[in-house]
Simulated assay, not measured.
Amino acid sequence: MQESNAHYGKYRVNETAKIITFKIDHATFTNWDSTEQVRHYIYTGNEIKYVVVSAHRLLIKMA
């Protein structure tokens, strides 16, 4: 199942490590408000792609 979450704020890109860091001011998932989210990304052509793995899914995989 895929969900979407809109958010706004600032971001930093570390091109060497292929990491994008979002400093989120506000999001539709309110538990993301005022947080910093770090994502690994893939850059192809003119697209940046990254995946957010939910904490619930991580717990299931680790069990």
Rank of each mutant, 00 (worst) to 15 (best):
M1N: 05
Q2Y: 12
E3D: 05
S4P: 03
N5G: 02
A6Q: 14
H7Q: 12
H7N: 11
Y8K: 11
Y8N: 06
Y8A: 07
K10L: 08
Y11P: 00
Y11H: 07
R12D: 09
V13D: 02
E15T: 15
T16H: 14
T16E: 15
T16P: 04
A17R: 15
A17S: 14
K18H: 15
I20Q: 08
T21R: 08
I24C: 04
I24F: 09
A27Y: 02
T28C: 04
T28I: 10
T30D: 05
D33A: 01
S34Y: 10
S34N: 04
S34M: 07
E36V: 10
E36L: 03
Q37L: 10
Q37I: 07
Q37K: 09
V38W: 00
R39P: 01
R39E: 10
H40Q: 12
H40G: 07
H40M: 10
Y41N: 09
I42P: 01
I42K: 13
I42E: 12
Y43C: 11
Y43L: 15
Y43V: 13
T44H: 03
I48N: 07
I48C: 09
K49W: 14
K49Q: 13
K49A: 10
Y50M: 12
Y50R: 03
V51Y: 05
V51Q: 04
V52N: 03
V52M: 03
V53C: 01
S54E: 02
S54M: 03
H56K: 08
H56R: 06
H56I: 06
R57K: 02
L58R: 03
L59H: 02
L59E: 02
L59P: 00
I60Y: 12
I60C: 12
I60V: 14
K61D: 06
A63T: 14
